[in-house]
Structures are given as C-alpha cells and as structure tokens.
C-alpha cells in the first residue's frame, strides 16, 4: 500500500512536469494550427538560459522564471512573425520542415556552444525530499513544478475565457474567416499566441532546471511525451493536456514499477492507442474542432 501511494505521488508529479511542457505546445497547436517541432529545443534553450543566469549571475532559477517567460514570449512572437507567418498559407509539410529545421539548428547550435556535457543548476533545496502527510516522500522541486503547472494552466484558461484578448484568440481558432470581420487582426493574434506558448516553455524551463540538467538533445527527451500528451488530451485543449499529462505520468510511474522500467513506454503507448480508438479526437477534443 505504501509503495502504491508513493508511486501515485511520483506519477502525479511527473505528470505535472509533462503538463508544464505540454500546455504551450497545445496552445500553439490549438490556435495557430501549427505543430511546433522546435518546442523541445525551446525547452533546451530555456534550460541553458536558466543555467547561465544561475551560474553566471547567481540568479535563483525560480526568480529567473519570470524574465525568462517574458523573453521567450518575444522570441516566440518574433519566430512566428519572421518564419511561420510567411508559411501560414503554405502546405503543412512546409511548416513541419521549418519548425524541425529550427529545432535541429538550435540543438546543434547548443552542441557547438556548450558541447555535449550536462550542465546542472545547483539547487540542493529542490532535490531534497519532503514528506507528504506521511504517505509519500517527494522532491520539493517536483512539488514546485506540479503547482506551477496547475497555476499556469489555470491562469491561461482564465485568460482565454475571461479577457477580451483571450476571447479574440479563441475566435481565431474557431473561425479564421469570421474573426477579421469582427475587427480582429488575425496575424497579430497568431504572433501573440505563439509568444504565449513559447513563454510557457520558458517558464517550464526555469522551473525544471533544478531537476533536469541541460544538454543539447534534452528537448527530444521530453517532446515525444509532450506530443502524446497533446494528442491524448485533445489537440488544443488545455484541460485535456493536464489530464493527459497526469495519465501519462501515472502510467509511467506504475508501469515502471509493477511491469518493468523498460516497458513503461510500451504500456503508455498501448493506453494512448486504446484511448484514440475510443475517442479519436482525444479525451477533451471536440470532433470537427481539430
């Protein structure tokens, strides 16, 4: 029993990490309808940026989160304007080439600049265990990531549902033809949305930096799971992404212990395929809205 509770706690916290990485991806996919294959590499850049800020400037990673999210917002918006926007009406394959190309360039750029060594942010506090009401023991850094991912998702959902700009963003996703007739500048919404999605990954990087080292291919380590989470949750659904992330986290944790660590991916992909057979649009996806 003890071990089960511990595994569930571990799984939920891992799910929190996946959710944090996935919300930006699902937002960009849901609104701009571009699959950003460079998402994982953005995370990698963020991890390096946090490491540099921590080791060179002595900035606490959690303090670095805010400026990093802001800088990433502008980087994302800039990338959309400069690279994605000219391709918005092109064949989707071309957009894939572009984002994969950006990702590859970033990963190899990092390899050139920082070599393949692992760079860790030194924050022992985050790696220390804390006791959860005597039922499980988890690392503090993981707990922080878990709460940040819920707070960020909640804030994003409130922003999309309650604010004028948020409504305009959803309007663009639901009807690209009608949105400009309301006076909405669709291209501006694309840039802002890409910026927000990228800002989320900047925030994720700073929060995860004390837990995961930076290395040039760290992005691909996370991004496959992030894609599974996005599709599982229903493409473009933020709530779905969080639930999907929790499912994947729990499955990984439980299957890794009860079945075999090597087989945990087999188990979650089997569940992934099973869910898609029953609900092709994903858990929270709306048919026709994908």
């Amino acid at each position: 029993m003890d071990i089960l509770l511990q595994l569930i706690a571990n799984g939920a916290l891992l799910g929190g990490v996946f959710a944090l990485i996935s919300i930006g991806l699902t937002l960009i996919f849901g609104i701009v309808r571009v699959v950003n294959f460079a998402h994982g590499e953005f995370l990698m850049v963020g991890l390096y940026a946090t490491w540099i800020m921590a080791s060179q400037l002595g900035l606490h990673p959690y303090v670095a989160a805010l400026p990093l999210a802001v800088v990433f917002f502008f980087l994302g918006a800039l990338m959309q304007r400069a690279i994605i926007q000219p391709l918005m009406n092109a064949d989707p394959h071309i957009q894939i080439f572009a984002t994969v190309g950006i990702g590859t360039a970033l990963a190899n750029g990092a390899l050139m600049l920082f070599s393949a060594d692992l760079r860790s942010v030194d924050l022992p506090w985050a790696r220390q265990a804390t006791d959860l009401w005597g039922i499980a023991s988890v690392s503090r850094g993981n707990l922080v990531a878990f709460f940040v991912s819920f707070a960020a998702t909640g804030a994003l959902i409130a922003f999309l549902n309650r604010t004028h700009l948020g409504r305009a963003i959803r309007a663009v996703a639901q009807n690209r033809y009608a949105a400009p007739l309301m006076g909405i500048d669709v291209n501006r919404i694309y840039a802002i949305t890409f910026g927000i999605g990228t800002g989320c990954v900047g925030l994720a990087a700073a929060v995860l930096a004390p837990l995961y080292p930076a290395f040039p291919t760290v992005g691909s380590f996370f991004v496959l799971t992030a894609f599974v989470v996005v599709v599982l949750g229903g493409m473009g659904s933020l709530e779905g992404a969080v639930i999907g992330a929790l499912i994947i986290g729990l499955v990984e944790s439980l299957a890794g212990y009860y079945i075999a660590p090597d087989l945990k991916e087999v188990v979650y992909f089997a569940i992934f395929l099973g869910i898609l057979i029953v609900r092709p649009a994903g858990l929270f996806g709306v048919r026709g809205n994908e």
Binding site: H164, R167, A168, R170, A171, Q174, N175, Y177, A178, L181, M182, G183, I184, V286, N289
Partner: peptide
C-alpha cells in the same frame, strides 16, 4: 474601424462559444 460590418454568408459564428461571447466579439 470605419464603421463597416458584414454579416457573412453561412452565418460564420464561433461555434464553441456561447451566444453572449459571440455578441461580445461583435463589439471587439
């Protein structure tokens, strides 16, 4: 901005939003 608005062919509402939200977007 110049005060010209179109009610497009085929309605073109925002289907997954409430009627109220659709109206609010009309006054964007």
């Amino acid at each position: 901005d110049l005060g010209i608005t179109m009610v497009p062919e085929g309605r073109q509402l925002f289907p997954f939003m409430t009627v109220r939200e659709n109206l609010m977007l009309g006054a964007y």
